[in-house]
Amino acid sequence: MNAFRLAGDMTHLLSIILLLLKIRATKSCAGISLKTQELYVIVFMSRYLDLFRTYYSLYNSLMKIIFLGTSMCIVWYMRSHKVVRQTYNNDEDTFRHFFLVLPCFVLALLVHRNFTFIEILWTFSLYLESVAILPQLVLLQKSSNIDNLTGTYVFLLGAYRGLYLFNWVYRFFTENHRVRWIPWLSGLIQTAIYTDFFYYYIRSWKNREKLKLPA
């Protein structure tokens, strides 16, 4: 494993820890999109099916279990915890899952490497992950008051796939020189979706101002 990959995974893990910390410490999920969090549960469930089939490493299995467990835990807090769920921005989190899940699934049926159950679900998870942040970004645009933890959570979540892009370039030149269009393009689109957010996040950080996205 190279440094980019490890940095990407750690950034991803840190983003989730930060979100759980926000929820547990402040007893609030204000500004967090339940739609996005539910999409991540779908992403992890469809991608990590091979947990029971192929063993890569202890690191790999542990991280998969952590991502699955924490994503379900976050959704549970937002839907079922009697204090936290009352802080959820129900009226503003209006994006429909269906419009993301269905096209991604159809695309995975059409564009994939092998027509097998696991491979189709793996491809679907990459397509869905690339757009899963959209409900969260829409919610942030509507929010007049984005707290630091929420802003940093989204920043780290976006940075993680960006670091994976470097990891893929590195692996291309050091390992087997194979082109992997599906993860590469999905990852590129995923990172590009954050571009605007990165710009405003870094600007607010440099100017020590509160983060605000233009509507």
């Binding site: 995974d9 092998n114 087997n176």
Partner: peptide, 10 residues
């Protein structure tokens, strides 16, 4: 073969 390069990622 199909399990190299990207299937071992998260």
């Amino acid at each position: 073969e199909s399990h190299s390069s990207s299937h071992d990622e998260l």
